[in-house]
Design a protein around this nucleic acid. Sequence first.
DNA 1: TATTGTTATACTCTATAACTATA
DNA 2: TATAGTTATAGAGTATAACAATA
Lengths: 147, 147
Amino acid sequence: MTATAEPTPDAPPTQDLLQSLAVLAGAQWRDFQAAAAHEGLTSMQAKLLGQLVRPLPMRELAALLACDASNVTGIVDRLEAQGLARREPDPHDRRVKRVIATPEGRETVRRVRAEMHAVHRALDALDPAERAALYALVEKMRPALEG
Amino acid sequence: MTATAEPTPDAPPTQDLLQSLAVLAGAQWRDFQAAAAHEGLTSMQAKLLGQLVRPLPMRELAALLACDASNVTGIVDRLEAQGLARREPDPHDRRVKRVIATPEGRETVRRVRAEMHAVHRALDALDPAERAALYALVEKMRPALEG
DNA sequence: TATTGTTATACTCTATAACTATA
DNA sequence: TATAGTTATAGAGTATAACAATA
């Protein structure tokens, strides 16, 4: 028997890999929904709030959330009503409103991220080397994911 | 300087890893929504349809979709109206209705999965060894994700 | 009594189209 | 005229509560 010089590890069937990734994404989504609900937010409200690392125009938020701009109005309205975000005028263009997170809003984002229980448990199942490998693999895919 | 015998690879900060995984999950979600829309379905309709590998009671579908049972009625109604799924009586319990995918429904599921363009592109960025490593890592996390 | 599926209700998200105020 | 944000509208997803049929 001729051993292959550098044995190619069995590449899993694409369907199996896609299924695994779907399980991971599904768990992340359920975690996020449950965490947001625990903080009194819908998943879209929490998702928008999580984008507010800096003041963002409504239009940019719509692009980041991959939804129509008209939806952003209502979502920001509800966040504003809960004191988690607010609108401010753009100094350079009076048509634009920039949305910013309040301190309470930023604290809520932190709590939601801390409440991703299944994902945190899953990462705890990996040792440091495995975590590093996972990170490297996803980062390698990232340009293709975003492009 | 004392070199560590077996140098631990730098484990990335948990926040960075969570962020990477969020980018991956986000891309999968956008892919799925776009693919479902291309087939004339909402993401929930496509998600339910994808679960129908065997006849499933409404109640089980609600559990799989992590939503209330009352929602399943409407989603199945719309799939049934499009000829992609149908209800059949359960032979052992007359309270139960089992939902099954029609051949056209199964074909639609196949097309949706094939249209996950960004994810497929991302996997193409990995070589076979990397794919195998990714699969092994996610499978190692799986019990924690599902538990 | 408990469970399955459904209906009614109210709220949120969603895209489309039309509107306003700026540019 | 083009763009940013809003409003109005209709369809879909969502949880809650109440209901009929069945276990």
